[in-house]
Structure formats: C-alpha cells, structure tokens
Design a protein around this nucleic acid. Structure first.
Lengths: 208, 208
DNA sequence: TTCTCAGGTTGACAGGCTGTCATCCGTGAC
DNA sequence: GTCACGGATGACAGCCTGTCAACCTGAGAA
C-alpha cells in the first residue's frame, strides 16, 4: 500500500494550490512547495511529479476531484426546457467558479508560457463550449432563441459570459457576490438571447 | 541628440512586442530581445531598461503611443445621447482591442507574477471602469437604463463585456471578426441594460 | 585635428531555478 | 532479517537575471 506516498502527494498538491493561486506559476518554486509539504525538492521529482508542468496538470485534476466538479455540470440536462437548462447552467457555472476560479485564473496565466497548461485549458474549454452549444441548440429548437441570434453566435456569447475570465472580473475584481453573479449574468444573458420573458435564477437569498 | 539611443530603444520594443505576445513574459529572455535588436544583453540593462519589469512597462507605454490609443477613447463624449455614447464606446473598444489585445493579454498573464504589470493593469482598468461608469450614469439620467439594473451594476456588466478578456475569448478564440464583436456585443449589452430599442452599431460591412 | 563621450562590446561572476544523479537512511511488510 | 519504498543530502549542468569592469568606436565640440 502506497498510502504514505498518497498522503505526501495530497499535502504537496494542497500546499501548492495555496501558493500558486497567491503568487502564480512562475512566482512559486518546486523547492517552496516541497518545503511546505515537509519534503525535499528532489523527492518531488523522484517520487511524485517529473516536472513543474506535470505538477500543474496533476494539481488541476486533484482540484477537480476535491471540488467534485464532475457532477456539477450535469443536472441542467434534466431540466424541462432549454431555457430552464440554460438557467441551471448559469447557476452551475457560478458554483463551479466559486470553487475553482482561483486555480482557473492561475492556469490561464500559466497558459502563455506552459504548453501543458495551454493544452489542458484548451481541452476544458472545448468541452465547456460544446456543452453550452447543446443547451443553446435546444433553446433554438424550442423556438425560444431570439431570432436575431444564430445558435452558434448565441452560444459563443453565452460561453464568453460564463467564462472564468468574466467571473474573475465581476466577482474578484468588481466585488459581486456569487449569487449576484448568477442572478445578473442570467438576467443579462436571457435579455440578450432568449425570445420570451425569463424567470429569474433562484438564489439562497432573494438578491438581485 | 540621442537619436541613436531612441532608434535602438524602438527596435528593442518593437521586437519585444512580437516575441512577448507569441511566447509570454516568462517565455522570452532579455538576451533574445537584445539579439533580435542587434544589441548585447548588457547594453539593454546599462542604457535602456534596468530590469525586465521596467521593460514591460516601457513596452506598454510604447504600444499605446504607437497605436494612438489616447484619442480613441474620447469621441464618445460628444455623442448626442447616453445611448449613442455607449454605442460609440463599444466601437471604440473594438478598435482599441484590435490594436492592443495581444499586448493586453500578455500583460494580463504577467500580472500574476510581476508587481509592475499588476499595478499598470490595475491603473488602466480603473480608468476604463470609471469611463464606463460615466456613460452608464448618463444613460440612467436620460431614463434609458432598464429599471432592473442599478447604474453601478450595469456599468460593471458593461465593463466585463468590454474587457480585453471577453474580446480575447470571442475574437481570438471563437473567431469572431472585430466588426462582429462590436455589433454583437452592442446588441447584447443594449438588450441587457438599455430600456428603449437600440440602433445597431454601424460597421464597414453590414454584418451582424 | 584632437578630445570627449554616448552607446556599445566582451568576459566574468553571484545568485536562483529546474532537472538529474549518486549515495545513504529508516521503517514496515514478509 | 531482508528488502523495497519513500525519503534525505550533496553535487552538478544548464539557463536566466542583474551587475561590474575593461575596452572600443564614431561623431560632434573645441
């Protein structure tokens, strides 16, 4: 049983997350991360991650597992209508970003100089865009897409509004709460691309 | 006359822009930039920029000057109404981003590990948000802001929609043309926060 | 014409970081 | 009691930033 290894690995990844989101990919060294987990730099290379890049990818997978991301993105498929599905997707995105926006932002920055980060990011984003594309297609088939938008263009707009970048601007920079983000982004998106009047997002409070 | 120095400086900055937007801040070394301009690494430190950070800031100022950014952001003040002013601001932003989005994206990534980049970015963004805030206030005073938005929240939304990040997603990643970006972002923004029906943006072509 | 100096060159070095090796050590499973 | 696993230490190559010293050159001032 390699439980000791797993424990060290978890300590490394948890400590790394904190350091990396604070100071960015190039602002943190493997040595720091290793020390933080009470282990030597060389042990990291020898027993855990062969390179800093590899570490970054492992961190992403780890964070997605810890935060239970996989389930978050499905329930909107069960919604009774395309519009409801899209509204659900907005609240799911809000929750998703609440949990992982810090790591996403770090990865986004690392992307410009790290091949592995760029590839991982591109993969995640392609899936996300495809999922949104399906929701908007459903909306269009049900006749609820405003006629001045093609499904593709509307999906691109929704994809942009639901991007980590916009969340970062509105929540981290402008100080919106996550509930406010969900409610307002849905209101804006619905105004822009939904043909019929849309119900507001339901939040824990009744906030706008 | 220090024209020789100025020429070298310009060569350094122009070459650096190309390299930096291609490979990112940490993907390019001072030595490469120096070689590209036909000068030694040490000469860069001794006669031009004391550090890589300093270089980055000088590059930003240089690019803003070369691209004539200052003028771009004003004409919307002369518009006859708040709504016209906001529409002008969208087209101005499109043109602005067309010229400098590559550098903005690089700076955005550098921000996470470079103090100077972070400070410069924050400064530019504060000005931008303030300008948008004024436009939306004017819209509100004229009674054209949808009643379900406060001026502050509407300005935050507009600020997010007009961010470099959203331009990057839609134009660089999703392949929208700059005209399409301007037309569609205005359509979306107007649908979301403008109370009365809005005229479309005028583009060179009649594209949506 | 000579002097000066701004801009530039080369070589060298300290200090950090990544990634790799070789060698040694303690502990728990068998 | 052995042995494998996870780990420690020391060392080193290679690369990058930033600094220093010494030398070079062309063009304008005196």
């Amino acid at each position: 049983m390699s439980t000791k290894r797993d424990e060290t690995r978890a300590r490394l990844l948890d400590g790394a997350r904190r350091l990396l989101v604070e100071r960015g990919y190039h602002g943190v060294t493997i040595d720091e991360i290793a020390k933080e987990a009470g282990v030597s730099r060389q042990a990291v290379y020898a027993y855990h991650f062969g390179s800093k890049s590899e570490f970054l990818i492992a961190l992403l997978v780890h964070v997605e597992a810890v935060e239970g991301i996989a389930e978050l993105l499905r329930p909107s498929d069960a919604a009774p209508s395309g519009m409801d599905a899209l509204r659900e997707a907005v609240t799911a995105t809000a929750e998703f970003e609440r949990r992982v926006n810090d790591v996403a932002t770090m990865l986004l920055a690392a992307r410009s100089t790290d091949e592995a980060a760029a590839a991982t990011w591109a993969d995640r984003m392609a899936r996300k865009r495809a999922g949104i594309g399906r929701l908007v297609s459903r909306l269009a088939e049900e006749g609820d897409l405003r006629p001045d938008w093609t499904p593709e263009d509307a999906a691109d707009l929704a994809y942009a509004l639901l991007s980590s970048q916009v969340f970062d601007v509105l929540v981290s920079e402008r100080g919106w709460s996550v509930d406010q983000y969900a409610a307002r982004i849905w209101r804006a998106l619905a105004s822009a691309i939904v043909a019929v009047p849309a119900d507001p997002v339901r939040t824990r409070a009744g906030e706008i």
